[in-house]
């Protein structure tokens, strides 16, 4: 008992000391984040509803925000990672064109998870499809299997990654739906960055959530719904 008290005391002392030392001009450096001691549950299914009619031509704010949040270089070479991209779509017969952001669709039946030999590709209980980079052997089979071409392979050694977003050479990666932000109670960077608020993020399973309500009232589609994968990302206005 005493021992624990002592440990706790010394921990408090050091953290207080640390906090005191690191309060630089106006900035609290030692971020006391709130830990989550409970596992995520399948009662929640995270998803998005993207309003393509509102997605401005030539605007790349979601892409920029994603790159910044996740520490991507933003390079456009075929060997550079792109977790989210804008696709310009032209309906030739109707003479209509529009654009939308495309990223991992966080399928309910993700092909990448089915084909991964080591189980590195997995779906979290709350519907987020992730790569466990500790297990990824870099075979790229998931990239072959993904119908949305949502995944990138890290072709070079990386440095100075975001401490919240570990990424490394020889493993496959893709949109994590900003899982580190979601776990901290925030919404994904792209949704936050969209100037037109075209990306609505929320819990698809919660009937009272804004996204669920809107999905009930507006016509929306899932991309390649013919494949029956039930993606968590819905699009409006395609």
């Amino acid at each position: 008992m005493n021992d624990i008290h002592n440990q706790r005391r010394s921990f408090l002392k050091t953290s207080l000391g640390v906090a005191a030392v690191t309060v630089a001009p106006g900035l609290l450096l030692f971020d006391v984040a709130h830990g989550k001691s409970e596992a995520v549950s399948s009662k929640v299914r995270w998803g998005m509803l993207i309003d393509t009619t509102n997605c401005a031509d030539g605007c790349h704010d979601c892409v920029t925000a994603c790159n910044k949040e996740n520490g991507l270089s933003g390079g456009l070479a075929p060997t550079d990672s792109q977790w989210i991209r804008k696709i310009e779509i032209k309906d030739v017969s109707a003479g209509r064109s529009f654009a939308l952001p495309m990223m991992c669709q966080h399928c309910e039946e993700p092909p990448c998870v089915d084909v991964c030999p080591t189980g590195a590709s997995f779906k979290r209980a709350d519907g987020i499809v992730l790569v466990d980079k500790h297990r990824c052997i870099g075979c790229r089979y998931c990239m072959m299997a993904c119908p949305y071409k949502a995944r990138s392979f890290v072709h070079e050694p990386l440095h100075n990654q975001n401490p919240d977003v570990p990424r490394g050479k020889g493993t496959v990666e893709s949109c994590t739906l900003c899982v580190h932000r979601i776990d901290a109670g925030k919404q994904p960077a792209c949704a936050e960055a969209c100037p037109n608020k075209s990306i609505l993020f929320g819990d698809l399973n919660d009937r009272n959530s804004e996204i669920a309500k809107k999905l009930r009232t507006v016509a929306s589609v899932q991309v390649r719904s013919d494949l029956g994968l039930n993606p968590g990302i819905h699009y409006q206005g395609i």
């Binding site: 998870v113 084909v115 030999p117 080591t118 189980g119 990824c136 052997i137 870099g138 890290v154 493993t171």
Partner: peptide, 20 residues
Amino acid sequence: LGRPDRFMLPAFNFNVTSVF
């Protein structure tokens, strides 16, 4: 492989749905 050092990994983390 991107991580050839982990080539033994599939033996320990076997995903039954993967044809690989």
